Amino acid sequence: MSKMSELSLAVKELKRCGEALISISESLADLFSSDGDAHTADQPKAEVPAPDEKPITLEAVRAVLAEKSRAGHTAKVRELLEKHGANKLSEIDPSEYPALLAEAEVLGNG
């Protein structure tokens, strides 16, 4: 992706975030300047679009697993990989990444 297209995407995202902030600030201003609950009940609630969920990448999972392995949890990392049906990370289906990452992040926390 070229630098200009990256910049264009960043500008569009920044504009979307700004519009969401303006909408939220207007809703809060209306809420605090209203004459009671009856006035706010008639107004539709401002909808803030959910942020686009970015897919978890192989590199992100690899980084977390490497960190856990360096912290002395190599055997547990291998168990997680086997639990998800693979001997190495590159063999795991990308749809398994969120679950694998969630399980790996708790290693050593308890």
Rank of each mutant, 00 (worst) to 15 (best):
K15W: 00
R62K: 14
A46K: 12
K54G: 07
A75L: 10
T74Y: 00
K54T: 08
K45N: 06
K45C: 09
A86E: 04
F32R: 14
E105Q: 15
T40P: 11
A60H: 07
L58T: 06
E19Y: 02
L7V: 05
H73M: 06
E26F: 02
L58S: 12
A63F: 03
H84M: 04
L7A: 11
R78F: 01
K76E: 06
I24Q: 12
G18V: 03
D30T: 00
K45M: 08
A75N: 06
K88I: 01
S8C: 07
E67F: 06
S34Y: 02
L21M: 12
D35N: 15
K68N: 00
A38G: 13
V61E: 08
E105W: 03
E47W: 05
V11C: 08
D52M: 14
A60N: 13
Y97L: 02
F32H: 14
G18P: 01
D93W: 03
L89D: 02
A10S: 11
Y97T: 03
R78G: 06
A38H: 09
K45S: 09
L65C: 08
V61Q: 11
I56E: 06
S25L: 11
A50V: 11
S5A: 10
D93C: 07
E47A: 14
A41C: 10
D42E: 15
D42H: 13
L31Y: 09
S95I: 10
V11I: 14
G36C: 06
A86C: 05
L7F: 03
